[in-house]
Amino acid sequence: MDIQELEKIAAQVRRDAIRMIYAAQSGHPGGALGAADIFVALYFAHMRHKPYPFSMDGIGEDVFILSNGHICAAWYSVLARSGYFPIEELKTFRRINSRLQGHPATKEKLPGVRIATGSLGQGLSVAIGIALGKKLQKDPHLVYVMIGDGESNEGQIWEAALFAAHHRVDNLIAITDRNYKQIDGDTRDVLNTDPLEEKWRAFGWETLSLYEAHSLPAILSTLREAVSLSGKGKPVMIIAYTTMGKGVDFMENDYRWHGKAPAPPEYERAIAQLPPTLQDF
């Protein structure tokens, strides 16, 4: 798929996420907008995966785990638009009797979701377990996982960091959604995680920087570089310098858009900046 096509999808994914969150009058727009380009790169160009029929074990394909589950509106849109479930289902986001739970869950059997995430810090460990399971079953495919930088306050992230390096889990590519924002403010004010790259290097991970985290060519080339580093005894971490709220000017870099839905006038301003590029749900 060419870059223009991917950019078109990413633009629609942003629009989907805002429409979903507005319709539900709840959700997490900032992170969803910030990670949309990476999700699109992974699912539409980079990963070798099988949307249908969905297999929970993920054996024989690349697997992605979203550990910072709250940003799932954009992820759900990408899953639907890459064929995991019907696009119309996006309109049920956060509604009663929906498979699209407020945070990702397996109980309702939404294709594409392999673990519940939402309580932070847990998905990286799960991804490591899936990577070990692939090794034991001689599956050469890779495991991808996204974690948040606010999420990296959790101790379990650093337990997992130690474990993956110690056990040479080198079929794992993690991505930190490094937007420097968390619920109560800037990460440097709430609980500083800097210097983050040095931390991951010190923990024994191959660590890459993705400065242009909204450029699809840059994302794809960093993902390819990460793949080239896999299989060499170390897990790989990509620090992706994303912009929270990317694509909606008044949401960009404003931590207050972590977890609230836009009011009607805000929605009108936001959606005007996100014109449809594909069919709306």
């Binding site: 993920g58 799960v126 991804a127 490591i128 377990g129 070990l132 079953q137 130690l162 474990f163």
Partner: peptide, 28 residues
Amino acid sequence: PERFFQAGVSEANMIGVAAGLATTGLIP
């Protein structure tokens, strides 16, 4: 030995890794 994983004093991570192993069809 290839089916045993020493997690160290990191119980939270151990539970998560087990959940991941189980996702792939293993019984941890």
